[in-house]
Design a protein around this nucleic acid. Structure first.
Lengths: 222, 222
DNA sequence: TGATTCCCCCTTACGTTGTAAGGTGAACCA
DNA sequence: TGGTTCACCTTACAACGTAAGGGGGAATCA
C-alpha cells in the first residue's frame, strides 16, 4: 500500500500545524498528532525530544512563512509597513499563533535574522543604533504581524449587546458612561464598510503608523 | 487547631496568587493549592466551579491591585503616564501575570470600568470618541502595565554572549551584522546606570511616550 | 427536644495527558 | 551470516482536572 514513507521532523511539524489550524491548539496532543500521521504516540519521540520541542518547532514553522522583503531604496516607513502587514497576513492564517509565540520562552534563530533586517533598514534610513534599538522594543510584536491586545476580537465587540438584558445594559451604561458613549458614537458613525465595531486591521495599521510617524520625528530631530 | 476558619473564594484566590508568586504558574494545580490550604483538592470545587474559574479569579485578583487614579485637571498625558506606570509596578510584583492575562479568554468586568476611566480622561482632554477608541487599541496592554514583547528579558539580553563559543559568536556576527553592531554600540554607550543591555523600564516609558505624544499631535490636528 | 436541612469538606475513581523503559522487525554493512 | 542501526511499537506510570456521591457538624424548624 503506497510507498513506505518514513517520518521526519519536518513532516511531523507540518502535520502539527495542520492539526492546530483545523482543530485548535488544545487538540495538539502527542496521541492525536501521531494518529493523524498513522503512527503511535511514542514514535514521535524519535524525531522530537519532548512536547516543548514540538511547540517550538510549530512556532518556528509558522514564523518561517514570514518572508523578509528585499531592501528597496525607498522610504523606510513604507518598507517596514509593507513588511509588517505581510507578516500580519501570515498570522491571520494561523490565529492561534500569536498566543503560542507569546507563551514560548525562547526565540528561534530565524527571528534574529529577520530582526536584523529591520535594524538594517532603520540604520540605513539614518537611525542611530540607539534609536533603532528603542524602535525595536516599541514595535513590540508588530514585526511578526500581531499586536497583543487585551480585547480579543471574540471577547469584545461581538459580545457587547447580544445577550444582555435591558436592565443590565442600563446598569452597564451607568457604570461606564464613557465607553458606552464611545460605542454608541462609533456605531453611529460607522455605517459603511466596517464589519463590526472594532476593525482589527484598521486598528493595527493605525497603531503601526502612529509608531512609524513618531519614530520618523525622533529620527530627524537629531 | 485555632479557630475553625472555613474557606472562601477570596481565601482560595489569595492562596493561589501567593503560590504562583512563590513557585511559578505551572505549580498551580488543584492538589497543590488545596495542600497549601490544608484541604483536599475536591474541596476547592465547592468554592470554584473549575480550574478555568480559578485562573480567571487569579487574574481578577491581580488586576484588582491596580487602582484607578483620581482624575486631576492637569495634562492628560501626565495623568495616563502615571496611571500606566502605576499599573506596571503591579505587574512587576507578579511577572507571570501578563502571560496569564494574555491567555485568558474573557475580560473581567472591573477592567471595563478601568478602561472607562481612561476613555473619560481622553474625551475630557478633547479627544473625539473615534480617536479615543483608536488610542485604546494603540495602547494595547500598556494600561495594565505591560507591553507584550517578543524578546522577554530572560531570553534576550542576558543570553547573548555568556555561553557562546567564539566561533559561534563570529558566525552570528556575520549572519546578523546589524544587530551585532547595535549591541556593540549600545554596550559601549551604556556605561552608567543601566543594569543590563535592555532596560525594560526605559523601553516601556519610551514606547509609552511615543504613543502619548503621537496621539497628542492627532488630537490638536483636528 | 428531636428531626431535618444545609453547608462544607472528604473519599474514590475515571479518563487523559506527557513520557520513561525497553522490545521488535527490517535494512544494511562487515 | 551475524551484528548494528534505524524507525516504530508496547507497556506502564505519575500527575492532571474533575464527575459522583458520602459524611459529619452546625443551624433551623417542628
Amino acid at each position: 500500500m503506497a510507498t513506505r514513507n518514513p517520518l521526519s521532523r519536518d513532516r511531523v511539524l507540518a502535520a502539527a500545524v495542520a492539526l492546530v489550524d483545523r482543530d485548535g491548539l488544545p487538540a495538539l496532543t502527542m496521541r492525536r498528532l501521531a494518529a493523524d500521521l498513522g503512527v503511535e504516540a511514542m514514535s514521535l519521540y524519535y524525531h522530537l525530544p519532548a512536547k516543548k520541542a514540538l511547540l517550538d518547532g510549530v512556532v518556528e514553522t509558522v514564523l518561517s512563512e514570514i518572508r523578509a522583503l528585499p531592501a528597496d531604496g525607498g522610504d523606510w516607513r513604507r518598507h517596514l509597513r509593507e513588511q509588517f502587514l505581510l507578516a500580519r497576513r501570515v498570522m491571520l492564517r494561523h490565529p492561534w499563533a500569536p498566543g503560542l509565540i507569546a507563551s514560548s520562552t525562547s526565540v528561534p534563530p530565524t527571528v534574529y535574522a529577520y530582526y536584523d533586517g529591520i535594524v538594517g533598514t532603520l540604520v540605513a534610513a539614518g537611525f542611530s543604533y540607539h534609536l533603532a534599538h528603542r524602535a525595536l522594543h516599541a514595535f513590540g510584536s508588530m514585526p511578526l504581524g500581531f499586536a497583543q491586545e487585551i480585547f480579543s476580537p471574540a471577547a469584545a465587540g461581538g459580545d457587547f449587546e447580544p445577550e444582555a438584558a435591558e436592565a443590565e445594559l442600563a446598569a452597564m451604561a451607568e457604570a461606564m458612561p464613557h465607553i458606552t458613549a464611545m460605542v454608541a458614537s462609533e456605531i453611529h458613525d460607522a455605517g459603511e464598510a466596517t464589519l463590526g465595531w472594532c476593525d482589527s486591521q484598521t486598528e493595527f495599521e493605525f497603531t503601526l503608523d502612529l509608531l512609524l510617524n513618531g519614530l520618523e520625528q525622533l529620527r530627524v530631530a537629531v
